[in-house]
């Protein structure tokens, strides 16, 4: 069907474009401002926070970014050459012993594809003795979470709980987990509302596949748990199928889910999960325990 003739709207377009540009300039300026604050905190890690550090929470709309990032491309991400060379001290300064020159704890809980970080802010106070890390591939989303954590730390600097055990890092979890974590380092891994990649052709881009599960099993300790939640039934079935098939994982029962506090946190605290609640969507949960290696394997 031929389109009806469009009224000329060059002026509108120009205005639109200008407005878009202005908005982007504003967003960028906001982020730059925050970045400077971030730098200050990062470099002044052993000093008291100065009064320029923001305590107001960052605003999400300044950090918007395209929803999908290609996990196969090599966008020259920064990643450590090996877990030995990873410097965690700037991310968790209160867990760094400057006399011994080493960390007093290792990251134990990882939120893979953490998005805007809602889960981290809930897991942190629930496991104050454990280091919790969010890994996120999108750069601006990661920056948002960094700023959010800085603000929380500043706001709660005088409180018992200081949000000092949560942090975030930009990274592609489908490629580089073994660069960050040692074998058997993690006790919990969260996959909350992962990108569904609906098309058949794109299934290899899903964050749960048979072959990737072997890598997750490598960084998880025996008895460690993989948590998954999604509002896409298809994806839930896919994750269940692949985890069921994998010899190193065993599904945890409904009863177990009901008594586990992380399941509850995961159900309610992530931004994506809250969106699903608002839209009255369904949520599917599946949790799996890391089984011991077969006896003959090392």
């Amino acid at each position: 069907m031929p389109k009806p003739p469009q009224p000329p709207c060059t002026k509108d377009k120009e205005t639109q474009l200008r407005e878009q540009q202005e908005a982007e300039i504003k967003r960028r300026a906001y982020r730059e401002n925050k970045q400077n604050a971030r730098k200050k905190v990062k470099h002044a890690r052993f000093e008291e926070p100065t009064d320029v550090s923001p305590v107001d929470l960052p605003r999400k709309r300044f950090y918007r970014q395209r929803a999908h990032s290609n996990p196969f491309s090599d966008h020259r991400l920064d990643y450590p050459n090996s877990p030995d060379t990873m410097d965690w001290s700037k991310m968790y300064p209160n867990f760094y012993d400057s006399e011994l020159g080493k960390m007093t704890s290792k990251v134990e809980i990882a939120d893979i594809g953490c998005g805007y970080g809602g889960l981290l802010t809930q897991l942190g106070p629930s496991f104050p003795e454990s280091l919790v890390l969010g890994m996120e591939i999108r750069v601006q989303v990661t920056q948002y979470v960094e700023d959010r954590i800085i603000a929380l730390r500043n706001k709660h600097a005088q409180d018992d709980y200081k949000y000092d055990n949560i942090s975030v890092i930009r990274g592609n979890a489908m490629k580089f987990l073994p660069n960050f974590f040692y074998k058997s380092q993690l006790s919990k891994m969260f996959f909350c509302f992962p990108d569904p990649h609906f098309k058949q052709r794109k299934h290899k881009a899903r964050i749960i596949t048979n072959t990737l599960l072997s890598e997750y099993a490598y960084v998880l300790k025996e008895g460690g748990v993989i948590y998954t939640i999604t509002d896409v039934e298809d994806l839930h079935n896919w994750m269940v199928q692949h985890l069921d098939e994998h010899p190193l994982f065993e599904r945890l029962s409904k009863e177990w889910e009901d008594q586990d506090k992380c399941v509850e946190i995961m159900y309610n605290s992530t931004e994506e999960g809250q969106k699903v609640t608002r839209n009255k969507g369904s949520k599917w949960v599946a949790c799996y325990r890391r089984l011991p290696n077969p006896e003959e394997c090392v």
């Binding site: 050459n81 073994p178 048979n210 072997s214 994998h246 010899p247 290696n293 003959e296 090392v298």
Partner: peptide, 25 residues
């Protein structure tokens, strides 16, 4: 692989990864 990794897995139970050798840049 292309991302500097050398991975060592058990065989034939190759779903059990033994370790990675880190050294290449």
């Amino acid at each position: 692989d292309r991302d500097e990794h050398i991975r060592i897995s058990n065989y034939p139970k190759s779903y059990v990864i033994k370790n990675f050798l880190f050294g290449h840049r």
